[in-house]
Amino acid sequence: MEKVEQAPTFSDGVRACVPTILGYLGIGFAMGVVGKGIGLSILQIFLMSLIVYAGSAQFIICGMLAIQAPISSIIVTVFFINLRHFLMSLSVAPYFQKATLWENIGIGSLLTDESYGVLTTYLRQNRVVSVSWMNGLNLLAYTVWVVATVLGGVLGRFISHPESLGLDFALVAMFLGLFLFQAEAELKRSTKKTLLVLASVFLSVYVLMWWTSPELAVIGATLIGSLIGGSLND
């Protein structure tokens, strides 16, 4: 009899999130330091992380608050920065078709670049995922991010130059690690197709950056890469 693989549990999702924790701690702490530096209270930093929950968007918010930008400009900017999450949610939605509406809303609401990277890595490895597993992954990341930003706000007053500790590179390093895991798996499956897709994405970003904002350039390059990847045969 063929053995059926058991659906992963909440604790399995928590364990899957562990490799990304260091990045969350580093960049979250830096975010708290920045927030405190522009005059936000610990409560305000906490609420921003709890409600916005987006590293790049929160840094942008702090920068725009520092120059006293109008609220409408901040809202529009954050919308475009986070628009990529719509594409990420669309790409993983087919794997949770049996989930309820509220379960899907919960997954989509807490989906980040990092949890998306872990999820797609598991899918590329043909590993089984479940709603419970995804909740474990998302909720640990969410908790660590909120705690890290609050700690940054509390302790940031004692650190005058956080970049000297390499905190500003933590998120980049984490992205590189997730990217390399995915690229390695894809290169083993189809080297030519993977290189063509990567080349099209890099070229698209470079060209689009001349005509539009970095956020829209990334979204456009993602769509172009997806279309090229979908049209090529393995």
Rank of each mutant, 00 (worst) to 15 (best):
L50S: 10
V172R: 13
L50I: 12
L90E: 06
L167R: 02
T112K: 01
L167A: 01
T121F: 06
S231Y: 14
V33D: 02
A54G: 13
N138W: 02
L187R: 08
N138G: 03
V14E: 07
V4D: 11
F86D: 08
V172T: 15
W133S: 00
L65S: 05
E2C: 13
F59W: 07
P94W: 03
L43W: 14
N233Y: 12
G39H: 03
G32D: 00
V131S: 04
K188Y: 10
R15W: 13
K36H: 15
Q44G: 09
L50H: 10
L50Q: 10
M64V: 05
N82K: 04
V205N: 06
A221N: 02
T112M: 09
F86T: 14
G177V: 10
L167S: 00
R127S: 10
L208M: 14
F179H: 06
E163W: 00
K36N: 12
T121G: 12
T222N: 07
G220H: 11
A148T: 04
V207Y: 05
I228N: 00
F10M: 05
G13W: 00
M174P: 04
T120R: 00
E103K: 04
L208W: 06
L223K: 10
M134W: 02
T212Q: 07
E103W: 00
S132P: 03
A185D: 09
Q97V: 06
V150F: 04
I105Y: 11
A66S: 15
A221C: 10
T222S: 14
V129D: 02
A141N: 13
V18T: 08
L43V: 15
K193V: 08
M1D: 09
K3Y: 11
A69V: 12
S130T: 08
L101I: 14
I45S: 03
V118F: 04
C62P: 05
K98N: 14
G220N: 05
A217C: 08
T77G: 07
G63Y: 03
L195E: 08
T191W: 11
E186L: 12
I219E: 04
L50G: 11
S190Y: 07
Y122W: 11
F96S: 01
N126L: 08
V4T: 14
T120K: 05
E114R: 04
L140S: 04
T20I: 15
E103N: 05
L101D: 09
A66R: 06
S130P: 06
V150Q: 01
Y206S: 14
C62G: 09
A199L: 14
G39I: 05
V218H: 00
G177S: 13
G136W: 04
L83I: 15
V147I: 15
I38N: 06
L198P: 01
T20S: 06
L227Q: 12
G225P: 03
E103F: 03
Y53S: 08
G220Q: 09
T100E: 10
M31E: 01
I42Q: 07
S130V: 03
A141D: 06
I107C: 03
Y24L: 10
F202C: 14
Y122S: 10
S190L: 08
